[in-house]
Each structure stands twice: as structure tokens, then as C-alpha cells.
Design a binder for these strands. Structure first.
Lengths: 250, 250
DNA sequence: CCAAAAGTGTTACGATTACACCCATGG
DNA sequence: CCATGGGTGTAATCGTAACACTTTTGG
């Protein structure tokens, strides 16, 4: 590593908290096994983050966010996508947005490194094959993490929960087509509390966030009425309920 | 300027969009002179941003946000505060928060420079004496601006408007003590639309954002009942109404 | 026919907006 | 005593939460 501490010159890295709602059984240290009587066959869902384990010092053995040094002619977003593709073989990032910058002079050992952090979301059906040092971890039960990476994951979780409420950001977590029950479980996993499928349907429909496809799925092994399928109207982030209060006059 | 394009090494700057709600007459290019019959004696209020005019190329004559190169051992927030104090003599920043990072490789000429951008707020009574090349500009009527600085101001305005709705961020715009009419005008100026003082009172009181001081101001020259005075309960940012929808069960 | 899952409808509640009305002061 | 601004109260509206009830399927 080239040491280069000329005044005003710093190293810049990007770090991504890549989140996915996925079957808890596929995560390391999943949270408490919840409600055993569940609809889908895949087991309970859990909000998970992608981490790799450091094989070398500093902080050998702790878990880190994927990312790395920004290329000379590289845009920040593209750098994140490149590093996710190269280092952990993840190419299905449906949404990527900036979180904050971490710039404390000694946040990591060695030359001063400023980190731009990102939230990335991977939709449910995708299950990329990961390198051996890489794994999904339940956000509710994080391992010992390197440097300031734990805070970044917390930021990501908070941002996701907030945007689930006032944007269509769940498009980046859900499959193309889904039943309201499936979508409900995704919301429950991401938010960490129970959401009612009926009301979720009404809220998202009135805002135009989801659209019925007209397709009907087959009912599961245990019977039950076959569910109607929906899709997200847009595949890019859209704010749907901007103001919590003090709305502009109509 | 030291050219230093060693791989991975970049220059880092901070840029601040410093906003204040202030008498429109003190701003360059204030918006349309609104409603002439107004309460206060200072004239209509306007949301303004602090800019300095470039005396040299590149982009000579255009207006820039205050900021500059990050110091070697300097935290980002402190760097912003230092540069505001040194370069434009502003020390009354009541609130400072990160906006996004701009990292396109050629966003400015010369060596690659990544900019961390910030929103700063200055409360109303403060009126720092500015250097001659520096002035407040109405956000509704920005001059020709350098590089990507106009976008940054737009981000700042959007962020402020959003947070006025679900946080106590107005503490950083208002004086220590104020009547509801005064606060109403601040909200109107910052949001760009009419807000009702009665309802503003109720919303902010119920949330505990403002507290009555018990003091009563004197009525103005044109008579009228003397207004009760209030203050913000907290002098730091607090989220008061987190979820727009999909609230967690009680 | 019964259990399970999905969908529909109704009610209740909370928060905000809009607006009419009363209060206090200066001229 | 009247114009001006400040404060209080109430009704209307909107959106969501909660929950009971109906529909459709598999065993």
C-alpha cells in the first residue's frame, strides 16, 4: 500500500451494507425462531446483511462490509457495484443509495481513509453464490464487526425502515410477482414488527405503489384460497407520501 | 496546488449550503415581493443561502458555496465549521448535517476532488458581517453557480423542508424566544407555502417541540393583542414523527 | 365438511385542516 | 370604539388500524 500523506490528499473507499430479506435458515445466527405456523414453505424470513470475514490483521477474524478503494476514474456508485461484483459476486443489486460519509482521521489504521457508505438491496429470489469467506448475517444478531462497520449497518437498517414507510423502496426487496402475504412477510422482516396484509394492500394500492397483475397463484399444500398476484408499479425509488405533517394546502 | 494522482489518492473538500430565513430586503435577488400587509416590521422573510463570488477562474464570476480542502487531521464537521468561520466569518451555525457526496471523476477541473456536502442552519437574529465577495441569495432565485453547487443547494432546501415536517429542526432557524406568528413566518419562508399559525401551535405543542415561556411580548405599532412567547424545547435535532404510515403497533 | 389461507367490509380512532368566534391592545 | 392582530373552540376530513365476516381451495 502506497503511503502518501501529502497535505489534503486522502484515500477514499466505498463500503456497502447490502441487505436482503431471506430465509432465516440461510443466515448465520438468525434471530429467535419465530411463529412456527407460517404460510410459505421456505421458513421464516429475516433481514440479513452481507459480510466477509477478515483473514488478516488488522482486526483479523472480525466481519467487514464489502467495498474497497475507489478507482481513479470511477464514479462512486459504479465503484460499489464493481466491488460487489468482483469481491462477493453479487450483481443483483436492485437499489443503491448513499448513506453518510465517515471521515474521522483515525477511523482505520494506516493512511487516512474516508469512507462513503451505501445501502444496497437485493431482491428475494436472488441467491448469489458467495465466496467462502462471505456470508449473510441476520441484522438482529450481528457478529463482532471491524472498525465502524456496525454503525453503518445500523444506519442502513434505519434508512430502510424509514423509506419503507414513505417510498416504494420495497420493490428492491420483493420478487417480480408476489402475493400480499409474501409481501407482508417481507415488510415484517424488514421492519421488525407485525404488519397487517389487508391494510398494507390498501395503503400501497391507493398510492399506486403496487398493481394487480391479474394472475392467480395456486394455493399451497395446506389448502387455502389461491392468492392474487401483484407487482411494483415502478422499479426505481419514488417518494409516495412526502410529508408527515404540515402538508402544503391542496 | 500539488498534483498528485497516485492510485487511490484523492483530494477531499467539504462544501456547505448555509441557509437562513431572513428579511428579503437583505438578500440579493429576493423573490417576488409578497403580501404587503404583514405583521413584523422587518419586511417579508425569505429562505436564503450564503454564497461567495469567484474572483478567479475557473468559472470566474459565478457563485460558489463556502468550503474547501479538508485538513489532514480534521474531522469533516469541524472542517466545515472552521472554514465557515475563517472564510465567511460565520460562527452561529446552530445545526449542521451531512448531505450527499459528490464524487464524479471530473466534477471540477484539476486533480480529482470528492466533495462531502453539508446543510448548515443559522438562526434568525444572527446577522454575521460578511466579507465583500460574500452575500445571501434568495434560494428561490439563485444566480449562476459554479460546478455542481446549484444541485447541492436544491438538496439542502429539500432536506430542510422534509425535516421541518417530522423533526424539530426549526430550532436552528428561530430566535430563542418567539411568538407563533413569527414562527409561522419562518415556516412559510422555509417551506414556500402558507402555514396556519393555529395548527402549527397545536402540532408542535402536542409533540413537545415547543414550550410556552410564560413571557408576553408587547403588541406592535398597529395594536393587536400581545402574543405569548415560546421557545424550542430542545436545541439539538430530534425526530418527532418518525413514520408516515405503517406505524408499529402500540 | 373442516381447516387454512385470501379477500371484503365496517368501525373506530387519531391527527390535521379549515374556519368561525372571542380576547386584548393601540390609536 | 374600532381596527388589528392573537388565541380558543369546534366541525369536517382524511388516513390508518383493528377486526369480524365471507370466499375459495386442499385434504
Amino acid at each position: 500500500m502506497i503511503e502518501n500523506m501529502v497535505h489534503g490528499s486522502t484515500t477514499h473507499e466505498v463500503l456497502a451494507a447490502v441487505l436482503q430479506v431471506r430465509p432465516a435458515s440461510d443466515c448465520i445466527n438468525a434471530g429467535q425462531p419465530d411463529d412456527p405456523r407460517r404460510s410459505s414453505d421456505t421458513g421464516p424470513l429475516e433481514l440479513a446483511v452481507l459480510l466477509w470475514q477478515r483473514a488478516l490483521d488488522p482486526q483479523k477474524g472480525t466481519w467487514s462490509l464489502p467495498g474497497g478503494r475507489l478507482g481513479d476514474e470511477e464514479d462512486l456508485d459504479l465503484s460499489v457495484r464493481r466491488q460487489l461484483a468482483e469481491k462477493v459476486d453479487v450483481r443483483d443489486v436492485a437499489h443503491l443509495e448513499q448513506l453518510s460519509v465517515f471521515g474521522e482521521p483515525h477511523r482505520v489504521p494506516g493512511p487516512r481513509t474516508i469512507a462513503s457508505t451505501f445501502l444496497g438491496l437485493v431482491p428475494l429470489p436472488a441467491d448469489p453464490t458467495l465466496p467462502p469467506d462471505t456470508a449473510w448475517h441476520a441484522v438482529s444478531n450481528l457478529p463482532e464487526m471491524a472498525f465502524d462497520h456496525r454503525i453503518i449497518v445500523e444506519h442502513a437498517r434505519t434508512r430502510l425502515a424509514a423509506k419503507l414507510s414513505y417510498t416504494n423502496i420495497a420493490f428492491a426487496l420483493a420478487p417480480d410477482e408476489f402475493s400480499m402475504s409474501e409481501l407482508r412477510e417481507i415488510y415484517c422482516a424488514a421492519l421488525g414488527y407485525q404488519v397487517d396484509a389487508t391494510n398494507l394492500q390498501r395503503v400501497l394500492s391507493r398510492r399506486g405503489v403496487i398493481t394487480a397483475t391479474g394472475h392467480i397463484a395456486r394455493s399451497g399444500r395446506s389448502g387455502g384460497r389461491p392468492p392474487a398476484l401483484y407487482r411494483f408499479t415502478d422499479q426505481a425509488l419514488r417518494v409516495t407520501d412526502e410529508f408527515a405533517a404540515l402538508k402544503p394546502p391542496t
